[in-house]
Design a protein around this nucleic acid. Sequence first.
DNA 1: TTGTATGCGTTATCAC
DNA 2: GTGATAACGCATACAA
Lengths: 347, 347
Amino acid sequence: MKQKKRATIYDIAKKLNIAASSVSRALNNIGNINEETRKLILSTATELKYKRNTLASNLRKGQSKTIGIVVPRINQNFFSNVIAGIEEASYQKGYNLVICQSNESHVKEIQCVNTLINQHVDCIVISVSAEGGDYSHLQNVIDSGIQLIQFDRVASELKTLKVLNDTEQVSMEAVSHMIEQGYKRIALLEGPQNLDIFIQRKAGYLNALKKNNMPIINELVVENAWTKELGATATRALLNLPNPPDAIFASTSDFSALGVLEVASAMGIKVPSELGICGYSNEAFTEITSPSITTIDQFSIYMGKSIADLYFREMDQEESSRTPITISIKPELIIRASTSRKTQSGK
Amino acid sequence: MKQKKRATIYDIAKKLNIAASSVSRALNNIGNINEETRKLILSTATELKYKRNTLASNLRKGQSKTIGIVVPRINQNFFSNVIAGIEEASYQKGYNLVICQSNESHVKEIQCVNTLINQHVDCIVISVSAEGGDYSHLQNVIDSGIQLIQFDRVASELKTLKVLNDTEQVSMEAVSHMIEQGYKRIALLEGPQNLDIFIQRKAGYLNALKKNNMPIINELVVENAWTKELGATATRALLNLPNPPDAIFASTSDFSALGVLEVASAMGIKVPSELGICGYSNEAFTEITSPSITTIDQFSIYMGKSIADLYFREMDQEESSRTPITISIKPELIIRASTSRKTQSGK
DNA sequence: TTGTATGCGTTATCAC
DNA sequence: GTGATAACGCATACAA
């Protein structure tokens, strides 16, 4: 199906025997224009079902009023919430969103970024794929003069705007909370260590142990356990150790925490009395498992809004202020049943 | 921050002392061109960090290779899955997605649609907001010669492409299953009856009762109970009836089903022995509640792919074939613990 | 207040 | 095979 021929400002101009520039002025309500002719123009515009061609307008103005977004997966709670937040804040400013998903593939991520550059988006917001690799495509964005904002999973070596969670701090709080609840052998399920966020979550874990003078037990630290299945597998191995853990910090996600919980239930191990569990992300389901799962809320929608705000603020700046600002959002530890074994409140 | 001046085909042409048109031909690998100059052009293009300006290209070509999407909420499982499906299928064809959310508001929906029309998207994919109202903005889309595809929540009076679930059929199956399990007084939580999908779910419910010669009991049909909270409220009222239901079909969503389950648990009513519960959508959490919740899977990702496929198929058609095709995807009843009270398998 | 002319970066149609 | 040129639809500097 071909697009029909649509009315242009020239069509309106011709019909009214005036110049196209006047039509343009009227439509944008810019410059001086006779009120009557303005009304006339507006009415014939609707009559001809005129729709501005944003493509042409943007080309002329040299900006697209579009923000490009690249995330590993659109249909993951955290990301779709961030996107929803960005959408809400930027919609008010008349900006549109072009969304791509990298599917955790580095190659697809590069392709996405390149199409967005070609699209002349004004800003690219990205959370990098787990696959990692080199980040010259992001340098490309910067070189193209497009504002680049990284969030959550960032390539830290790049000097760009960043919106992050204070991951290490909250991870430390989580583990400290477990220690305070009397857990002695706390295991860690860690994520791909090529991503900063997972390094930080581990650092928080290690710090908490250190501050509380607890030993670091290597056999309790499991690499790459960041899906429900991997979390389950890791848990089976851990619980079958001669000296098993009495708590597990599933730092990768609530999904792996769920895997932990299911394995524990299947093995007849009581949560939280025999095993404490803490996840990460505050997925909706953590509230309704039995027991409910202690987790960490990342304020994802708010994060999206912050990203948009940051962009609009930067945009208003003088050209000179190219400071690589980093905004850090403090996540919140949500204490629930899965780690509450003392009777007094966990607060 | 202003965008930097970017290299154009003229910059390449000037540098090589050739015509811009040759550069264009080389870059698009179209028409006849000397292989050597082609390579020369390509290499200087990368050297100058040339990026095609898709805006200009699209303007010239009169198409945008962009699909616009309007959904009530981006961060709702069903919708983000559909979007993910569309994204995957359309990305391969070199199409981009522009996404808007209506937040269930009719006014915002109209605004979204209008910006997409202005953006000159090639196709608009929409699931209308619950608020309803008149659909002249969708007629606008058609009049603008833009392909319109409605999915799930559709304005049925409009002759457009549609991708739907076979809602009535599966709803009937769900209720029949409950009857087969021995439930005698099955309540219905219904959604806004200005949306077809909710009308159909109700129709399926009524049909199942009729086919099984069971009476329709008006006090067991509750209007507008489509959030967790509303579902909970409705359930409290239902269970406090002199003659309460022994099963509830939360036809609106799994969230309302969850509300039902929570109220039942709080009241000490056993599920499924004293109360059967069936939800709708197969949200991830339905699998992990205790008991797990019987629900209906809508194949949302597949739905997204079907939408994209439908568009590309139609696009290849002759102009004439403006038949309003409707694709119906059969959803699947997922029988879980919350309705399984006979010992033999629910199959 | 209004009109004229030009350019945004491409692609397509001609000539050569 | 290559180059000049027009056109896509709009916005703006300038002239009237």
